[in-house]
């Protein structure tokens, strides 16, 4: 249930950009030049990766359609857990 809620929140935030300065981590699925397909809890979004060096399988912190930091799975998981925790409240 909580995962569904998180997904809805993430989808809503990406669809409507409700939180301007929030950045979420997502997993890179594929690259196409300076654009990547990034998976956010099942919601796949095109992201500009001009600011980071990254490859499929990496996680990136995404803000306003742009990856601002590249990170390993462990770090990304710790941030994702945070959002899950925030949603508990």
């Amino acid at each position: 249930m909580q995962q569904i809620h998180l997904l809805v929140v993430i989808y809503h935030d990406f669809r409507y950009n409700k939180h301007m300065c929030v950045a979420y981590p997502g997993k890179i699925l594929s690259l196409d030049g300076r654009t990547a397909k990034v998976d956010f809890a099942g919601n796949v979004v095109s992201v500009n990766i001009g600011l980071v060096d990254t490859r499929p399988g990496d996680y990136v912190l995404v803000h306003a359609g742009m990856a601002i930091e590249s990170m390993g799975e462990e770090k990304a998981r710790s941030i994702l857990n945070v959002f899950a925790e925030i949603n508990e409240f």
Binding site: M20, N48, A64, M66, I68
Partner: peptide
């Protein structure tokens, strides 16, 4: 184009693209 340091590079990337 509104935003702080976090968002500003996106607009630079937009111009480049």
């Amino acid at each position: 184009a509104v935003g702080f340091e976090t968002t500003a590079p996106a607009y630079a990337l937009l111009i480049e693209e």
